[in-house]
């Protein structure tokens, strides 16, 4: 059984009198340790998928099974526990707590997890050993995103969800960040799902899910994903 299973998942938003059908009955499987990229234009419904997968939003119809658990039937409290223990999340805008140093931001997440990694080691891993005690405002965007990744990783999650992690970064920095993600995934055999509008990034994925207007247009599997360094965009 696949690590992640989406079965005919629908998501509808009620906006006043208008119902927005954000996800229209999608189904897909993701295996353990796969680096998956969900790609599509703005409004394609990829963020919704990520939200649903991250337990941040509830679906309207269908089934989502993660690691054998049917999270689509979870209530709010169970979802919180799910997010707390199984998910690492990397935001487009880093979302670091501005009032905490890099290390503290990581520690904040580490505190939540049952079996966290050593925050300092994780920070070392993301290459921020020397900047641990800096506040987010003292860090560059890339550095901030590394802190964010470290914050996600320190929880030792089953699943790492990344929402356009490079969206707010310049290419070079973005590449560094992506590399970090790719390497980490490989080293830890972690399942990573990244959403992006940048099709170029599909090359680095084990699996690519293409979406458009709330529907999956295509699911591809890369037998040989490229290392990030070799991708150009």
């Amino acid at each position: 059984m696949s690590f992640i299973q989406f079965r005919n998942v629908h998501k509808r938003y009620q906006m006043g009198e208008v119902t927005i059908h954000a996800v229209k009955g999608i189904s897909f499987n993701i295996e353990q340790g796969e680096f998956t990229v969900v790609v599509g234009a703005s409004g394609a419904g990829k963020t919704t998928v990520l939200n649903l997968l991250g337990g941040m939003d509830s679906l309207s119809e269908g089934t989502i099974i993660v690691n054998g658990k049917e999270i689509s039937s979870y209530n709010e409290r169970q979802l919180t526990e799910y997010r707390r223990n199984e998910i690492g999340f990397v935001f487009q805008f880093y979302n670091l707590v501005p009032n905490l140093t890099a290390k503290e931001n990581v520690e904040l997440a580490a505190q939540l997890s049952k079996n966290p990694l050593d925050p300092e080691k994780v920070l070392e891993q993301v290459g921020l050993k020397d900047r641990m005690d800096n506040f987010p405002a003292q860090l560059s965007g890339g550095e901030q995103q590394r802190v964010a990744i470290a914050r996600a990783l320190v929880k030792n999650p089953q699943l790492l969800l990344c929402d356009e992690p490079t969206g707010a970064l310049d290419d070079k920095t973005g590449k560094n960040v992506l590399k970090l993600l790719q390497d980490t995934a490989k080293q830890t055999d972690m399942t990573v799902i990244m959403i992006t509008h940048n099709s170029a990034l599909t090359a680095m994925a084990d699996k690519v899910i293409r979406m458009k207007s709330g529907e999956i247009t295509k699911i591809e599997t890369n037998e040989h994903p490229l290392p990030v360094e070799r991708i150009e965009w």
């Binding site: 941040m56 526990e81 997010r83």
Partner: peptide, 9 residues
Amino acid sequence: TIKVLGFRS
């Protein structure tokens, strides 16, 4: 954000 991180209510 902290909610996403899994802070309980």
